[in-house]
Simulated assay, not measured.
Amino acid sequence: MKKYILFDNDGVLVETEPLYYEASKRALKEFFNVNLQFEDYMKIMTDGNGVWVAAPNASYEEVIIARNQRDVYYQEYLKKEDIAISGVHEILDELKQTYKMGIVTTSRRVDFEIIHNNRGITDFMEFVLCVEDYPRAKPFPDPYLKGLELFKAKKEETIVVEDSQRGLISANKAKIDCVIVHNKFTQTQDFSTAKYKIDSLKKLIDIL
């Protein structure tokens, strides 16, 4: 029986992934004249690399400058674009009656706080783990193993909710069942090893 839910953030609870892609694409073009194609970006993300591998001749110093500007662009987008996913609060309100929940994200905490400022989603959560809170990011298992540790939970008592292949790989390596919720942004990725695949977060209630 499942008692705990570990949610990915981007693409599951808020629609931010296209904005991160656009910010990265913009910075690569501006600083390195690289046109980052969507298919290449998806592979880079799945492998767990930074987008700067698309500019292999860039120096470390150049990458730092470009990354800082990318982060500026991303935060600008977060503050002005609509990133809400319809029905999330109602679903979490129903789930909290039965399950303890946490967020496990590869977002930086500074970005996470902008995303969730006055949004109310974190009120349903026992904890939030950001990229600074574990040794290695997804697709390594560290983020979800840390989530288990904080819950003091067994793997078989826990389920992960993801929308990306990178997150699925992380959950698989942690040996935790994973639900993939449909997201247009990641729909071309390989989710064949997911325990469940659902077309909306609301269906999570039905399968638990």
Rank of each mutant, 00 (worst) to 15 (best):
T186V: 01
G11H: 03
P18S: 06
G50D: 15
F112W: 03
E126Y: 08
P18T: 09
Q75L: 11
V63I: 15
Q187T: 08
A55N: 11
N33V: 00
K202F: 06
G48Q: 07
D93F: 09
N57W: 02
K43E: 13
R119P: 07
G48C: 04
A171F: 04
D199E: 14
G87L: 06
E15A: 11
H116L: 09
T46S: 14
L204A: 09
F112T: 05
S59R: 15
Q69V: 14
F7Y: 11
K184W: 00
E30W: 01
F191I: 10
E22S: 12
T105N: 06
N9W: 05
I114V: 15
Q97I: 13
F31S: 01
I207F: 01
F151P: 00
D163S: 09
I114C: 08
P143K: 04
D71P: 00
N68K: 15
Y60C: 11
K175V: 10
K195G: 05
R108W: 08
T98K: 15
Y99K: 10
S24G: 15
Q97G: 06
Q75V: 11
Y144Q: 06
K3Q: 14
E30Y: 05
M45Y: 13
R109Q: 13
I65H: 13
N183K: 14
K152G: 11
N118Q: 12
F38R: 14
L208G: 00
I85A: 02
A84T: 13
K43W: 00
A54R: 12
N68W: 11
G167Y: 05
T158N: 03
I121Q: 01
A27R: 01
F191W: 07
P135Q: 13
E90N: 13
Q189D: 00
T98G: 02
I159F: 05
V12M: 10
F191T: 07
R70H: 12
T186Y: 08
A84F: 09
V14S: 06
Y134P: 02
D40K: 15
Y99H: 07
K80I: 10
T193I: 03
A137P: 05
L95I: 04
V181P: 02
G48H: 06
A194G: 07
V72H: 07
N9E: 11
N172R: 11
Y41V: 13
V131K: 14
A194R: 04
S192M: 04
D10E: 12
T122G: 10
L145V: 10
L6A: 06
T188F: 06
G147R: 02
S170H: 07
V34M: 04
L204T: 05
E61G: 00
T158G: 00
D82F: 04
I159M: 12
V63M: 13
V161N: 02
I64D: 13
I176M: 08
M45V: 15
S164M: 04
V161I: 15
L36R: 08
D93P: 03
G50P: 06
K25W: 01
N35V: 08
I159E: 04
L13K: 03
K146S: 10
E22T: 10
Y20Q: 12
G102D: 01
L6C: 08
D111M: 10
E157D: 14
Y134H: 09
E15S: 12
N172C: 04
L168T: 04
